[in-house]
């Protein structure tokens, strides 16, 4: 079990679905290659989960895999619902929006959720926030076409005013005033992390909010218990726990952001519960254009104490 908590290995979902970064076409994945990767880490939990996945002539069966992915992402949404993640994101996002408005931005503010999966956060906001009142536009982007199709289907089923696109969120024509993500940033490791953050430096981008698990001593144990109880698929159970083990600490995130984005003030929001040493399950890497910082602090009001050093 503990070998599946080794943070230096990838998650199963990182390996079983691959896209050509240029054409965004799906690339066939050889099942044995995935098994070999986890074999190198002696991660039998992951190997058992991968072995269960259907294959065709040695390659993972794309159709069956997509069905499995949907199941996994529906389960993941359940966790987000249980942790009121939509509320959590909006609580901070509305402050950022207010700060941007105070700075004089009058145009519609475009919010882009990076690696949105089936788009829970965006759809939650589209369903619960009066977008006209705040003059915001919501979009989700992901490289995985299956997840994007599902996000669009779900949004369509409820007639939600948001859209989802397959592609690179930082590419031309897709840029946002605010970038957000949930559980994405720990996928960028080593030099990949400042590289990812550096891509936020776009002319219209004013801020970013990246939510992720907060690593601490008991996080993998808690994640293991919780995922064991709440998730039904072996892939979701495995990756959920590994995500908690792989999550970056506040310092790593802060330093990477400050190195990659000198024009932004960056810091961690919501690390501790009510100013006690108890850590929150999620923390947020916050980045703002420097002229927004004072207003952001003011707009936070009594929640200001949740904000770490922002510079």
């Amino acid at each position: 079990m503990f070998r599946s908590w080794n943070p230096s290995q990838p998650e199963i979902t990182d390996l079983i679905v691959e896209h050509d970064p240029r054409t965004l076409e799906r690339v066939k994945v050889r099942k044995q290659d995935v098994l070999d990767t986890f074999s190198r880490f002696s991660n039998r939990t992951a190997m058992r989960a991968v072995e269960q996945l259907p294959e065709r002539e040695g390659f993972l069966d794309e159709k069956e895999l997509d069905r499995h992915l949907l199941k996994v992402h529906w389960e993941m949404q359940r966790l987000a619902e249980e942790f009121y993640h939509g509320h959590r994101v909006w609580e901070l996002l509305r402050v950022v929006i207010a700060s941007i408005r105070e700075a004089g931005v009058r145009e519609t503010i475009r919010i882009v959720d990076v690696g949105c999966g089936i788009g829970y956060v965006i759809r939650w906001m589209a369903a619960n926030i009066p977008l006209d009142k705040y003059r915001i536009e919501l979009a989700g982007m992901d490289l995985n076409s299956t997840l994007i199709n599902e996000a669009n289907r779900l949004a369509g089923a409820e007639e939600l005013p948001c859209r989802f696109l397959q592609g690179d969120a930082f590419s031309n024509g897709h840029s946002g005033h605010i970038f957000t993500s949930t559980g994405v940033i720990h996928h960028f490791r080593g030099p990949g992390l400042p590289q990812f953050l550096g891509r936020h430096e776009q002319p219209e981008t004013q801020a970013f909010l990246h939510f992720d698990f907060q690593p601490w001593l008991l996080a993998p144990v808690g994640a293991w218990l919780f995922h064991y109880l709440r998730m039904r698929t072996a892939v979701a159970r495995h990756d959920g726990v590994l995500s908690a083990a792989r999550a970056h600490d506040g310092r790593t995130l802060r330093e990477a952001a400050r190195e990659a984005l000198p024009e932004f003030a960056s810091g961690i929001y919501g690390a501790k519960i009510w100013n006690t040493p108890a850590p929150r399950v999620f923390h947020t890497l916050v980045g703002l254009r420097r002229p927004l910082v004072e207003e952001f602090r003011r707009q936070l009001g009594r929640r200001r104490s949740r904000l770490g050093e922002l510079r």
């Binding site: 992402h73 779900l154 089923a157 939600l160 709440r230 039904r232």
Partner: peptide, 9 residues
């Protein structure tokens, strides 16, 4: 039923 339906409402 939880985790088996992904609509918001």
């Amino acid at each position: 039923s939880m985790g088996r339906c992904a609509v918001i409402g």
